[in-house]
Nucleic acid binder design. Structure first.
Lengths: 211, 211
DNA sequence: GCCGGCCTCAATCGAAAGTTAGAACCGGCG
DNA sequence: CGCCGGTTCTAACTTTCGATTGAGGCCGGC
């Protein structure tokens, strides 16, 4: 295990969090932090230079590209580093896009340092590590398909929760109002509700959307 | 300024964030991290032992007491350390309770390390440091006297947030549907929105209704 | 290749929600 | 006391939303 170290890129817009990850991981043998990125765009360019084994990726960045988009951009090309998502939230709205984008693992920031190091080593070999809460959520999705909203549906419902009208949602997502309605109709049957506010209420309750 | 160092307590439920704050602050001369706390309860007991000058307090903890409650408990007694809130969010629902609880400063976690160290030194002497976004928010509140909702309006809006229709709300509160609409119309003008879902969104953001 | 989800769009029709314009009630104040 | 501001209530009118039905394209599994 002491041959070549695992080379890491830290992508997070919080300097404090980057310093914390660095402090926690550099005490671990066989791990080496070789770069940091404060924006998702920087993370993509830095991760595609060929000298990174694992990217620790936050999902929320202040402006611009999201962590999920950056993850997709990084994992798109062959021979790319593995991306280990390290973030604060475990709602479907966060987890599903990240996994969809090709993340190798999904950890929460309250994870103890040992788990973090173990997950990094697992990710380096392509093995998946999920935070317990995330694993539970995915298992629950498989058992109870009733609450399983698709990615697009969560996207629409999140905008509904933000108070946008169907027309405004359509404009934002480049859809017609009719399409938005059709998504909402399916959301209503899946969640067994009959209005947008009720859908937001139960979806928030179930952790399908945040806020 | 090189006489006695400023003694710090780090209160955050994320090990990574604690390590990051420690790494960032220990490189600063005159600052010394003497304790950490992973829960708000621990923070209170540790902060009241007399050997702490400044507490860096997160607001969100996984379980139990919130950071704002802990801040109130700490600042309640005379001769208590100053509390510098260091958190992720700057919504009214976060900022106002923290300031109400006696926080000396309010910083966001995306602050650069220099600002952090400067804010700690300011807090040690009782001076206030606010993140720019927080300052703006407070100024804005003073200019736009926040149309506080009446009891009845909050009652109605809470039911709206629960997903009930105007008719159902009327039945619940022994009103006609028209009356409910009239209340909502007033709520919309006060909150400067134009739909029920938007009203719920901003009211939740502002902490006017819960969950 | 066929089938079954998922995403997209469309058009109707009834039912809510939102808008407007008032009126009754109550407490404080000149 | 009469006036006023705030709250509560009501009945119209307009707009948006939700239900329903139907259909085409795309992708992945059997």
């Amino acid at each position: 295990m002491t041959d070549t170290p695992i080379r890491l890129l830290l992508a997070d817009d919080h300097p404090v969090v980057r310093a914390g990850l660095r402090a926690v991981l550099e005490t671990e043998p066989g791990l080496e932090v070789v770069a940091e990125a404060a924006t998702a765009e920087d993370a993509v360019t830095r991760a595609t230079q060929g000298d990174i084994d694992v990217v620790l990726m936050d999902l929320q960045f202040g402006q611009g590209m999201t962590g999920a988009q950056a993850t997709a951009a990084i994992t798109a090309r062959p021979g790319a580093p593995h991306v280990l998502v390290v973030t604060t939230y475990d709602t479907d709205a966060d987890v599903l896009p990240a996994i969809e984008a090709g993340a190798t693992g999904y950890l929460l920031k309250d994870a103890p340092p040992e788990d973090l190091a173990a997950a990094v080593r697992a990710a380096a070999t392509g093995r998946t590590t999920l935070a317990p809460a995330v694993g539970d959520r995915l298992m629950h999705r498989l058992r109870e398909p009733h609450a399983a909203l698709t990615l697009r549906e969560i996207e629409v419902l999140t905008l509904v929760a933000g108070g946008l009208s169907n027309q405004a949602i359509g404009a934002r997502l480049y859809l017609t109002e009719g399409t938005v309605k059709s998504h909402l109709a399916r959301i209503y049957t899946k969640l067994d509700v009959d209005s947008r506010t009720a859908a937001v209420a139960t979806a928030t309750q179930l952790g399908l959307i945040r806020r």
